[in-house]
Simulated assay, not measured.
Amino acid sequence: MTQRTGAAALARRVATGATAVLAAGTLLTGCTGKDGESAAPSPSPDPKTTLLAAVPDEKDPAFRFTGIDATGTVTGAVDPAGKGWELVQKDAKAGFTTTTSRRVIDQRFWMKVDFSDAGELSDLLKLPEGWMEFDQSKLEEPEVYQGADVGNTAVIIRAADAVRQQADGSYTGTVDLTGGPEVADAVDGVDVAVLADTAKAIPFTAVIGPDGNLASLTLDIPAAGQQKALEYVVKYHDFGTVPGIAAPTGADVEAAPASAYELLNG
């Protein structure tokens, strides 16, 4: 996923602040939006506008997210009020499991790497086992809080066409991944050039939860060339039940060593 979170990219914020409708298929006829304000009556709300209004924004409480793309699965939490996010990515391709945890609060960034069943790699790479805090000025791609929509859903929805609400309350349409570099970057790990003309109409399905927030967005990326078919999935859930993101403290935190900067800067 992309919003430049290094190896596990996840976060770019381009959301709108309109009022959302409930996913149960009800129209904006006196219902309450996700911000708790009464929505203006409308006989036929635009489905694309409705989806954009449901994208998480800075007025939302802390929530969890799950992202699945060509690079694997990422889980985490976002705290809009505290300008923080945390994500965890596991990679088992190397014969052992590497768990990378990243935490950002505004302009501060920490990372922790755990090599399950291969602890000697920490010594080999000269990495501490606890949290490492980084000097952002030394990173080629600084890790900073950029907004609540860590899965780039607003960028994707803005590039959507033929958006329709289905009988079950879900929304469908197609997305033009050739609509600019921002759109192509939103789907990390997908070679848009290989998709050729197919990239101009990638099918998607989106669901708005009962709370008026975007619950899921799924892009069905077809196989092309050496690129396998895959689903790009973003899920936002547990709004208001997640504690705020706090800075790591105590003896478990130390300044990142030079080897950690080399790892991130490639």
Score class of each variant (00 low, 15 high):
179 G>C: 02
179 G>Q: 05
182 E>K: 05
182 E>Y: 00
183 V>N: 01
183 V>F: 00
184 A>V: 01
184 A>H: 01
184 A>G: 00
184 A>Y: 01
185 D>P: 00
185 D>A: 08
186 A>H: 02
187 V>N: 02
188 D>H: 06
188 D>C: 00
189 G>Q: 07
189 G>D: 07
190 V>K: 01
193 A>R: 12
194 V>E: 13
194 V>P: 00
194 V>A: 12
195 L>K: 03
197 D>N: 05
197 D>V: 08
199 A>F: 06
200 K>N: 05
200 K>E: 03
200 K>P: 01
201 A>I: 01
201 A>E: 04
202 I>C: 02
203 P>K: 07
203 P>N: 04
205 T>Y: 08
205 T>C: 06
205 T>Q: 10
206 A>I: 07
207 V>N: 12
207 V>R: 12
207 V>S: 09
207 V>D: 12
207 V>F: 09
209 G>V: 11
209 G>P: 13
210 P>K: 13
210 P>A: 15
213 N>A: 14
214 L>E: 08
214 L>D: 13
214 L>Y: 09
214 L>G: 02
215 A>R: 09
215 A>C: 09
215 A>T: 08
216 S>R: 07
220 D>V: 11
221 I>V: 15
221 I>L: 05
223 A>Q: 10
223 A>S: 13
225 G>A: 05
226 Q>K: 15
226 Q>C: 03
227 Q>W: 11
227 Q>D: 10
228 K>G: 11
228 K>L: 09
229 A>E: 11
229 A>W: 04
230 L>Y: 05
231 E>G: 14
231 E>T: 15
231 E>Q: 15
232 Y>R: 13
234 V>Q: 12
235 K>C: 12
235 K>D: 15
235 K>P: 12
237 H>V: 15
237 H>F: 14
238 D>R: 00
239 F>K: 08
240 G>T: 13
240 G>E: 12
240 G>V: 13
242 V>R: 07
244 G>W: 08
